[in-house]
Structure formats: C-alpha cells, structure tokens
C-alpha cells in the first residue's frame, strides 16, 4: 500500500521538491553535480553517494560543484543565506567540519544576533555521520554534540526515510542555520514515505515504541539498535519506551521527561564519544528536572573515549550494540 523508498531517495526527493517549489533554494558541494556531460550513467552522477543525482538535469546551475575547500563554500553558503538565498551545502563528512568552524560557529550562527535581528541565515549543511562502514577515525565520527553546544544552530539527526524527508524540508524552510546529519548506515534503509511534500516541525520527539518499564532515548542509527534491544527485552518481560528526539537542538525534553515520570528509569544511547555528549546532556537535564521520578541512576550507552578504530572487530566493539543497550536496561532492575 505504502510507497517504500530508501533514506537516500527521500533526501533526493526532498531536495528536488523544495528546489522546484522555491527558486531561492540552491545546492552546493564537492562533486554534487558529479561530472556533467558524461555518457549515460556517468552524466551528473550526483556525488560519491549519489544523493544529488539528477538534480543538475532538473535545476541546472542551481546545483553547484565547489572546489575542495570547505571553508570557502560553507562561508559562501552563509553569505548567500544572509542575502536571501536558501543554500543547502553538502559537506561530505562531519569529520571535515573542523576546517570551517569559524564560518559556522562565528558567522552563520551569529548573524541573527550580531546584526540586531536584521539578518537571517536560512542555510542547511547536510553531512554524513557515524560508523559501520569501516572508514576509520576521520570518516566515522558522530560530532553532533559539538554543534548542539552552539546557540544559533539547529541540529537534526533523522533515523528513518520518513523523518529524513520531512525534517530536511523543514530544515530548508527554516530561517536559521541547520546542521543536518545523515548516518551512513541508514542510506539504504527503506521506509514508507508520502510523495507529497511535508515538513516535520523541530523540537518534536518521536515515540517509536511504547512501554512502561524503562525509557530508552536513542539518536540516529542508534534508534534501530535500541529497538532491537527493546524487542529482545520484551521477551524477558521488560517493556521499553523508545524515544527518538529527531533534533538535538532544539531538544524535546518535555516528551523525554513525561516518559521518565512514567517509567522511572532512563537509558540514553548515543554513538558519540561520551564526554560532553548528547547522552551526558540528556542525562544531566533529566536528573536535574525529574530527579524525584528516577528509581535508579541514568545509564549512558556511548562509544568509548577514543577515536573510531579502523579494524572491523574493534569498530564493532566501539559502536553501542543492542546487547550493550539491553545490559544497561537490565542493570536498572
């Protein structure tokens, strides 16, 4: 009944529909046109992962290949946004964001505040996060907590194709700079996605599974690991409520606290390194605001405090697994 498309296709569709709706929406990034004028399949391939495939054919020069200079094209996107465009910049891996921190932290995030509210910065930076592809330390990190820390930025981490389309459309229509994080292990995930455009508002967590014993908050790809754990735990008679915040800035703490007030137990699953992570942040906020509801300590399931390893065996140990999540839940008895 439903129309099933992949996470990758839903990103492509959101971009195409918003570009068709609003001509101020432009796309830019390294190799996102992907070799125009080639033969057959080689024409306008749409970047290494093909997210932007076909867009150049539809929208011509509104899809721009940039030099391999993140600092330049992210800065250009911020400037274009301040001047009335709605750029969607693709910065291949979040790991590369270091070279353009100033453009994001000190420029895009600050324009609205430093220009007395006269400038808006409706830009989106799409970027890939996460492990599982054996891509080693510089291509596997989950650096969204760094951006969540900065006032003026919005941070979005979809966990499924439906959310990816609706959140990207909202990100493009939003008047603030948005860091849009796409987990590499989700690209081929299929889901039911309406063809009609729709926007999912920010600050609205999704309760993926209802349960009365333990609340599990999981982010991005970890939602699937948490669901795996919840299914296993249900067989042991433990009912987990799984919450996907969808955006870490703004964060829908209300839904999380409402759930914790019911269950009294909280496990936060975050693929980031643990220090100053979303796990640490959510744990602290819930502990401060709903301490009286907690029946035990908040458990954090995160990557260890080390860079993502290249070795298959070590990377599997590095990323939070369903089994580790289940263990954390069981420890709260």
């Amino acid at each position: 009944m439903a129309r099933m498309i992949t996470f990758k296709q839903s990103i492509n569709e959101a971009l195409a529909q918003e570009m068709a709706r609003d001509e101020t929406v432009i796309a830019m990034g390294e190799d996102i046109v992907g070799g125009m004028g080639g033969d057959g399949e080689m024409d306008a391939w749409g970047g290494v992962f093909g997210f932007t495939k076909g867009l150049h054919g539809q929208f011509g020069d509104r899809v721009m290949d940039t030099p391999i200079t993140e600092s330049a094209f992210i800065g250009a996107a911020a400037g274009a946004a301040a001047c009335g465009m709605r750029p969607v910049a693709e910065l291949m891996f979040i790991d590369f964001m270091g070279v353009c921190f100033d453009q994001i932290f000190n420029q895009a995030a600050k324009f609205k505040y430093m220009f007395g509210g006269k400038a808006e910065t409706p830009m989106v930076v799409r970027t890939m996060i996460g492990g599982g592809l054996r891509a080693a330390s510089q291509h596997s990190q989950c650096l969204y907590p760094i951006f969540t820390h900065i006032p003026g930025l919005k941070v979005v981490i979809p966990s499924n194709p439906y959310d990816a389309k609706g959140l990207l459309i909202q990100a493009i229509r939003d008047n603030d700079p948005v860091i849009f994080c796409e987990h590499k292990s989700l690209h081929q995930l299929e889901g039911d996605v309406p063809e009609t455009p729709y926007a999912i508002p920010f600050n609205e967590a999704n309760v993926v599974r209802e349960g009365g014993d333990v609340t599990i908050v999981a982010i991005g790809f970890m939602v699937h690991r948490a669901m795996e754990a919840a299914t296993a735990l249900a067989k042991e008679g433990i009912q987990c409520e799984v919450i996907d915040p969808r955006t870490t800035s703004p964060l829908d703490l209300e839904t999380i606290i409402e759930s914790v007030e019911n269950t009294g137990r909280l496990v936060v699953v975050d693929e980031s390194n643990p220090r100053c992570s979303m796990a640490a942040d959510i744990s602290a906020q819930v502990t401060e605001q709903a301490f009286g509801s907690l029946k035990g300590p908040v458990r954090m399931v995160t990557a260890p405090h080390c860079p993502p390893p290249f070795s298959d065996v070590l990377e599997d140990l590095y990323m939070p697994s369903a089994e580790k999540i289940a263990e954390a839940v069981r420890s709260l008895k």
């Binding site: 439906y162 455009p197 729709y198 999912i200 209802e210």
Partner: peptide
C-alpha cells in the same frame, strides 16, 4: 492509540 494519532499527524503535515 498513539499510532492512530501519529498517523493523523503524518497526514496533517502534508503540504496543502
């Protein structure tokens, strides 16, 4: 159910 409300919300979000 929560799912019923979630489905209504998905419908209400569609542009137009």
């Amino acid at each position: 159910t929560r799912q019923m409300v979630a489905d209504l919300l998905k419908y209400k979000r569609l542009d137009g």
